[in-house]
Design a protein around this nucleic acid. Structure first.
Lengths: 200, 200, 200, 200
DNA sequence: TATGAATGAGGGTTCATTCAT
DNA sequence: CATGAATGAACCCTCATTCAT
């Protein structure tokens, strides 16, 4: 029956939300399953109906959150009339950085997971039910551009690692400068990296 | 008495070594204090004579290991007759990457701690008893160069974050390519970042 | 409606069969009700429609299995033309031992329950719907014999305990010898016990 | 230091005694580790200092108790001036039965473990620090006798299984008769079993 | 009848920390 | 200084049982 099914989803969602909140405030290791279920208002056993353990729900959360981060950015860029490849690319990066700046808990949580590993799996698997394949989209954008680029994967890797790592520091600790102050340098660096991969 | 003192140091050193070995093999959270003291051959109580808890010894280990990583690189570059700033800079990066490639456990351990936070404290405090101040040295090198650079701190930050993050992925998982394959691209990118900060 | 009734019986039978299989493979204490219902393909609640708990179904299974063990043996002896009391008695014992040898899981399950307690209740109640009363049959056989025996109950008790206990060890662990090797000694011992109870 | 050592043994002994008491009153499965440590007056962790789990302490208890059961019987027979093999044998059986009759909890606990498995290991290993090897002693007694016996191991096995199994029923449930009533029949049966193994 | 999601008490186990020796 | 037995709070996880559908 639909009622039971929706109730089921409601509990699962409550567990997701509570776990995310606790993981981002207390940290994963200091968060206990008892904490989660108590705050979510369900019984302990219910947790184990849906998740194997604390790390299971954590991994699923990272996947969910990262997926929507990228999906939102792509959706946004498609609603603009930006034509140029480099501009689109910078727009997506900027969109993600802004979302992480507004949502520091999210940044802390997926933190350095926003590295190549997660990105790679995001571009190969359709996370959850999202249907955007980022890497495909990235390659399409490249092809549409007037220029050719050598080693597109290495180029993307270099930029993703640079952005992920530096944004973490600037957003969370304003070190060495705030993210707003850093952005001009970051985007300039990204552009010259892109340029350096152009095949003349 | 010197003998007692050395015996004391021996136990402390045994704890450091064992903790490092266990942290890098089992991970910090799965390593217990019982594990450490048992493998180190000292009593449980002895651990608490030297360290407050597991995280205390872990932090001290990160500082120790990171410090010698940089010290070794600087010592090595000073034994060469490289004159040029950019070449010295690349040499230091290369030296650190090679050491981390040989010692993957060390890389895993200090892993993403090799970000700006640790680096910053390394350039402001003399870690342990090491007397090289990296940032001072970096500024000196810059001044000796024929060119002037805008925002030296942001420039350094950008490069350190890029190197730390990408080396982690290439060395530990060969993704997207091995570190040896990646080096040419990495060093080319570093050079253009340096160039882009040059004041004409 | 007959169909509903048979469906009901089918579920109950599925629970019996699955429980027996799990009890004999994993042991009673490591078998959970979840295990049983899952493997039987019925819902958790359904279990409680037919049985009070795990021990209820276990007891009913022991009774069922023991009952058919004896019933089969008696049916078999009646199909032979053995006339003599002692020979009939040995035949029944032998038949039971052979069935337990072929079906070690059954032996493990009813194991030492095949002692006087279960036997006694088997001879006083008609287990389930079986209509053979073993003790009555035993007494009838005795009366038909040419000799009289003192204390028939103690005699039967002694033999049942000896057989149950020694067969368990020989069949399941071949200790101190296999059941086939032990049989000659066992049957010789049974015969002299019978002889020793004869009233001259 | 001796003080700490004796304190250690005191806690271990308290755990043994409490566990035995609870196992024999509530049964093993209904006894929890919490029950044991609470009644023994030690902390939960202390239990795990000495035993792996509930079944570990249970097995060690069975071994301890069974060992002293046999040791006591042998000690007692050696203090008599009984010469004859069969009489010594019956005396030992009788001594054990009497001890189990006085200590029904012990009988329940080691219950059907008093079968060949335990007995066999008792005759091959010196349980704990007891130095009587029952099987050796049994063989010695046999040799001292005026007669020779075929298959001494099977003979012993037959008797041990018969005694263990029937005594359990008679002592604990007086079924089919009390142990005192049963003894004459039991000992008569034992004697004819012994006789039947004599080589003429 | 039949279901199976939800429950939550309570089990086993771990381990950082203490302190008498 | 060094020890390591003892502690016990706190954790994870199980699973028999219920009850709304």
């Amino acid at each position: 029956m639909a009622k039971a099914e929706s109730n089921k989803q409601k509990k699962k969602e409550a567990l997701y939300n509570t776990a995310f909140e606790l993981f981002t405030t207390k940290g994963i290791h200091k968060t206990t399953i008892s904490d989660i279920v108590q705050k979510a208002g369900v019984a302990k056993g219910t947790f184990y109906l849906y998740f194997a353990d604390k790390y299971d729900i954590s991994n699923k959360l990272v996947a969910k959150k990262t997926s929507s981060l990228f999906t939102n950015a792509v959706t946004a860029v498609n609603q603009t009339d930006i034509e140029n490849f480099q501009d689109k690319f910078i727009f997506i990066i900027d969109h993600i950085i802004d979302e992480l700046t507004r949502n520091k808990a999210l940044l802390t949580f997926i933190s350095k997971n926003l590295g190549w590993g997660v990105f790679k799996s995001a571009l190969e698997n359709r996370i959850i039910t999202e249907d955007v394949k980022f890497y495909d989209m990235y390659l399409n954008l490249l092809e549409e551009d007037d220029y050719e680029y050598e080693e597109p994967e290495i180029m993307l890797f270099t930029i993703i690692e640079l952005v992920g790592s530096s944004a973490y520091s600037c957003i969370l600790s304003n070190e060495p400068v705030s993210i707003e102050e850093y952005k001009p340098y970051l985007y300039r660096t990204i552009r010259i990296i892109l340029e350096s991969h152009k095949i003349p």
